[in-house]
């Protein structure tokens, strides 16, 4: 899509906004609709849009595949790790009261943030990894055939 000037300029403007919105959805998820799943998908959409317009090589320079693959596993580790930490603090698995023993609802806030962050990281990683896997294949149809 080298010749689509408008697409390229608009994409440059949009990608930043999309990523900002993804962070908003991620960390404001306790107060408004949103959370890790949606934020992960939106974050992935930002990179996919960049990849579609500027090409796979450009986006992989920003967000290399090995980082993506690590993120896929890291999110699940963060989630399960939250549970293990609360276990070691003497509470049940995934009992967020552990993080602020004198103020259980604050503990819940911290726990929910950590867990949602884990979900967001995994979902971003998986979606971008799937896109990379699909886009790395040589296409059978040329652009004109569409």
């Amino acid at each position: 899509m080298r010749h689509h000037l408008i697409l390229r300029v608009v994409t440059k403007l949009l990608v930043g906004c999309i990523i900002l919105f993804a962070f908003y959805v991620q960390f404001h998820g306790d107060f408004s609709p949103g959370g890790g799943f949606q934020a992960g998908v939106i974050m992935a959409v930002a990179f996919i849009l960049y990849g579609i317009v500027f090409g796979l090589r450009k986006v992989q320079a920003v967000f290399p595949p090995w980082v993506v693959h690590k993120m896929v596993a890291l999110g699940v580790l963060i989630y399960a790790g939250t549970g293990v930490v609360s276990l070691f603090l003497g509470y049940g698995f995934l009992d967020y009261g552990a993080f602020a023993p004198h103020h259980p609802s604050h503990g819940q806030h911290y726990g929910i943030l950590a867990v949602e962050f884990g979900v967001g990281v995994t979902v971003t990683g998986v979606m971008v990894a799937i896109y990379y896997a699909f886009a790395a294949r040589p296409a059978r149809l040329s652009d004109e055939e569409w």
Binding site: G35, F37, G40, V41, V123, M127
Partner: peptide
């Protein structure tokens, strides 16, 4: 909510 993401 979770089912949608698992679905995709």
């Amino acid at each position: 909510l979770t089912a949608i993401v698992v679905g995709i």
